[in-house]
Simulated scan of single mutants.
Amino acid sequence: MRKPKLLMTPGPTPLPPEVIAAMSQQIIHHRTKEFGEIFSRVNENLKKVFQTKNNVLTFAASGTGAMEASAVNFFSEGDTVLVVSVGVFGDRFINICKTFGLNVIEKKYPYGDVANIDEVIEIIESNKDIKGVFITHNETSTGVTNPIEKLARYLKNTDKILIVDAVSSLGAIDLKTDEWGVDVVVTGSQKALMSPPGLAFVSVSEKAWEFYKKSQLRKFYWDFKKYQDNLLKESQDTPFTPAVTLIRAVDVGLKLILDYGLENNFKRHTRLAHLTQLAAEKLNLELLPKKEYSSAVITAIKSPEGVDIEKVRKIMNQKYDIMVTGGQSTLKGKIIRIGHMGYVDEFDLLKTIECFELALLEVGYKNFEVGEATKAVLQEIAKGVNS
């Protein structure tokens, strides 16, 4: 008898029963008081999770849609921007900006490294034409989290804006949008927000709105002012037909996060990352990034010599119904990535580690004591029980 697959991936992530129940309701019309009340509540709760006083715009789109929107709303063709990349999604920002005719200065770091913020600041100071800086907060392709606070605080009092891809981090890793001075933050519904794919969210600072006024890139669906104007009406709605069912789902997901407590949620994700890193250590496996930069929402582990890590992943998926992911781009076949974000707990992780051990054994990797990783994780969980 097969059970539903346990999604230990960088997204989509498992859904709480309350979120699933919300999506099972009969559809309602989006130009009604009933929907307006739901959408207004979502907007207020999004501000809390984004840690901003500014409105958060909602799009029926993937996170990539919000990334594209963040390029076309603030710049004009030929404007110079700096894009800092530490992986696949940083590279995506580069491609988006080039698509719309922006003059892109690229600062790339090897996969597994994080951005050196001092180096980034030096580039900004030596290129006065830079109008905006794009950076990924948490790079799921390599399992690293960029230390963006210093960069945000530096740019806060300059004539440049900071645009951050927080698609996989928002709600799971602390990002103090207003306090740090992040001008534009983009995220998606299907990761730490514990909801299905299909919605994208963008917060916009007052400084960024001044950039919007000067932007000459063409936009229609992605025009931020259309969405902002609709949020300023007494009955909040969207300029185009919204994904009503998904907004209902996010409404419930946000409530669960805020009831649990944002800080508690950060701590929970950090603990799950610690347990996964501990398991890797007991299996004599090496993390791709340095431990101090390893993500709280996904752990990237190098394939040991002589092991077909893609076969390990397939065994976990097809035999044990636990879906983890492999490497992307140049990391394909070189790493395995275990997600631990959103509606995932310690016991989901314990099961994942057990099956990881079994899959490694099946492909012939024997450089560990069977059960040692699982035992170490269980002992760490028991400490929490005892305390």
Rank of each mutant, 00 (worst) to 15 (best):
E263I: 08
N317I: 02
V344W: 00
P289T: 10
P304C: 01
T330A: 14
K291P: 02
H340E: 14
L288R: 05
E281P: 01
T352V: 00
G342K: 05
L272E: 11
L361S: 11
L258Y: 07
L254C: 06
E305V: 12
L256I: 15
L272G: 07
I338T: 05
Y227P: 02
Q228N: 09
I335V: 15
I309K: 02
T299K: 02
I309N: 04
G339I: 08
E357S: 01
K332S: 15
G339C: 10
G326P: 09
A296P: 08
D251P: 08
A300Q: 03
N265E: 09
Y293E: 06
V252G: 00
T241E: 15
Q277N: 07
Q228V: 10
T325Q: 02
M341V: 07
A280R: 03
A279Y: 08
V252A: 00
Q228S: 05
L275M: 06
G306V: 10
K267C: 00
V297Q: 10
V244Q: 04
C355D: 13
K351T: 12
E354N: 11
G261T: 02
V312Y: 12
R313Y: 00
T299R: 06
G327Q: 02
M341G: 10
L285M: 10
L232N: 15
H274M: 02
Y227D: 04
G339D: 10
D321K: 13
K225I: 13
F347D: 03
D321C: 03
Y320S: 03
Y343Q: 04
L349H: 05
Y260A: 04
M316L: 13
L262R: 05
P289W: 05
P304I: 05
G261V: 01
T330V: 15
T299L: 09
I257F: 11
F266A: 07
I336G: 02
S303P: 09
K290S: 09
A280E: 04
G333Q: 06
D308S: 05
E286C: 06
V324I: 15
L360T: 01
P239G: 14
N264F: 01
Q277R: 14
V344Q: 04
L349M: 10
V344H: 00
K334T: 10
V344D: 01
R268T: 00
T352S: 08
L232D: 15
L287S: 03
K291R: 14
E286L: 12
A249T: 10
Y343G: 03
S329G: 13
E292R: 06
N317T: 02
V324N: 04
I322M: 05
T238L: 15
K311T: 08
L275G: 08
H340K: 09
L272I: 07
P239C: 10
H269F: 11
L256C: 08
Y227W: 11
R268E: 07
K351N: 13
A296H: 12
T276R: 07
F347P: 00
G339K: 09
V324K: 03
L246G: 11
L262D: 00
D348W: 10
L350E: 13
N284G: 08
E354Y: 12
N284M: 06
S329L: 08
D348M: 03
C355Q: 14
L360W: 06
I336Q: 11
A296M: 01
T276I: 06
I322K: 06
N264M: 01
K311G: 00
D308L: 04
I257L: 15
D229G: 07
